[in-house]
Design a protein around this nucleic acid. Structure first.
Lengths: 346, 346
DNA sequence: CTGTTAGCGCTTTCAT
DNA sequence: ATGAAAGCGCTAACAG
């Protein structure tokens, strides 16, 4: 199916010649230059020549001339390549497509040296802006970015000169409590994954911290206390299972507020191990809307991280004529499924 | 942390001036031009000037001049953005980094029109080659690619002029049978997901087809037959659960050969529903090494799709001076975990 | 052995 | 109202 080789790509000059006008005129028309007065007749001929020749502007030449590449850079520690947060990339891609931009991507694995090289590589290629995305919200490294180059952080605490796009974890935390309380749960709720008070745990991402703060705020506002707090060394199923097993040992537990879906998955196992049933015996609410959430039985009610919206918003920030002054907080929405029921005391 | 603006990026001419040589000389040295005789002294001065000025070549200008952009295009229907196969992207990224290339990515969602636009966009930006990746192995659309532009398909049946990188599903199929037989299973094996004979089911991706062919081949070679074949409308947990439930109704089932991990996940549920235990009562082997495989209990033995190797290989094909004549078959490796035990008749 | 020249394809003054 | 000319930053061919 090969078409013409790269060498004989149709050039603007050829279009001009065919239309019987100067290259400049063609350029004007193609770019809809405001203060360009080209006769309707000439426009007509140019349009036809473009059509007939199948002309496409050479973006490389245009980039060189205009210092704009119609390309954004997307750098992440591992977002791109981890199953977890590909939604960020998807959203960014979609949003970029809307403004006819492509994404030039690079992975750093969190290594500052690779990060530096990635930034340089993007700069060398004249990107119009850079999205810095991270799996875990840490503070970004200090890059030597050119003045005036739009950039934005996703899932990263904001650095000077750049705003961040973050999920609204605080309100999500509040909602998780609401969901359980609305179903009738009160003094039988166990918190699985971490102690309520985040303390100064350095391993805790900023988003996780805010999640806990929202939970604490809402519990406090209602004058409630958890029946127990069961931390997990890591927020993975194995640890979740252990923590949930302990919780089941405590008296009067009617619900578990799990700090993420992987923990919740472990909790399902522990509940099943005890011969109990999720929702009927123990209600569960969780965070992330991980892929497993919808295939569990019963399906897990969880508060989704709006990855796609975050990615889209990030690119929109790059595109915006004026950078917003504040971080963008993207609302998290509850995926109501079947893991919450009324409390039942055993 | 802002450095110099884009406008006053150091240029090769400035380096030349500082080193007291011509721009051409600098270019020669930087590109290690073979037939360039530059005095050691001049080289020394150039090197220092580059260092002191922090010069970085402008890739856009270089691209325009050389028609090489140090960039590959990566187009997929949804590989990039689906949790499933991000490994392909990761591998491609890693492999590209090794040859100092970046990836320009685009998603098509399988829409031929978006696909066409994506190709054009990449061509406009002068990519040095294109990877076409797909979630499901179908036949690729016929693109009008410039003669001589390297391109390669991943997970797609090969088209004329392009080779494909595919997982070696046939041998994986054979191995799955081996694994069960090695554990002692013989006439109590149920096939879950599809009938053994693929027929001309158009919904069946080429990879799935080969998987079945490998299974059939090995069964045949051993003179074995399945105790039952239980197709699934879709290879998802819900259908897998139903199919496995039916299989459990049949007499003498000791093992299930599930055609992917999501089906296997459903099978776990069905087995649990029947009050049975995976491995002890029913052995399971499966394909894909989906994320859930390792967090199931017991952990699922499955044959992994080598996504990362596939992506890396694809870029290597692009990089290679001469395109191989044949499709690249990437071996699939068995992740031996805990879902297979000796047969136990109930 | 080194420096000068031309030009990749495009856009943007500036003359006409 | 239109076209000619300059130049973005670089490299490949030449001339010195």
């Amino acid at each position: 199916m090969a078409a013409k080789s790269n060498r004989d790509r149709v050039t603007l000059a050829q279009v001009a010649e065919r239309a019987g006008v100067s290259p400049a005129a063609v350029s004007q028309v193609l770019n809809e230059h405001p203060r360009a007065r080209i006769s309707a007749d000439a426009r007509e001929r140019i349009g036809r020549a473009v059509e007939e020749l199948g002309y496409r502007p050479n973006m490389v030449a245009r980039s060189l001339r205009m210092s704009r590449s119609a390309t954004f850079g997307f750098i992440s520690d591992s977002v791109t390549v981890t199953r977890y947060a590909t939604g960020i990339l998807r959203g960014a891609l979609r949003s970029a497509e809307e403004v006819d931009h492509l994404l030039l991507i690079a992975e750093t694995g969190g290594d500052p040296e690779r990060e530096r090289r990635a930034v340089e590589s993007l700069l060398d290629r004249g990107v119009d802006g850079i999205v810095f995305a991270a799996m875990k919200s840490r503070h970004p490294a200090a890059y030597a970015l050119p003045r005036g180059l739009p950039h934005v952080n996703v899932n990263l605490a904001h650095s000077d000169g750049a705003i961040s796009v973050l999920p609204d974890e605080f309100n999500a935390g509040r909602s998780s409590v609401d969901a359980l309380v609305d179903a009738g749960h009160a003094d039988g709720i166990a918190l699985i994954g971490h102690e309520l008070s985040p303390g100064d745990d350095p391993a805790l991402a900023i988003t996780a911290r805010r999640r806990l703060e929202g939970i604490a705020f809402e519990m406090d506002r209602r004058g409630m206390r958890f029946a127990g707090e069961f931390p997990c060394e890591d927020w993975e199923p194995g640890y979740g299972r252990d923590a949930a097993r302990q919780a089941l040992g405590a008296a009067g537990i009617t619900a578990m507020l799990c700090l993420n879906d992987r923990i919740a998955f472990g909790a399902y196992q522990a509940i099943s191990d005890h011969g109990l049933t999720v929702a009927r015996d123990i209600s569960i609410v969780s965070f992330d809307d991980d892929e497993i959430a919808s295939i569990l039985h019963p399906a897990l009610t969880t508060i989704a991280i709006p990855h796609e919206r975050m990615g889209a918003t990030a690119v929109e920030v790059l595109t915006a004529s004026t950078q917003p002054a504040e971080d963008a907080l993207i609302p998290m929405t509850m995926k109501v499924r079947d893991s919450i029921g009324p409390p039942r005391t055993r």
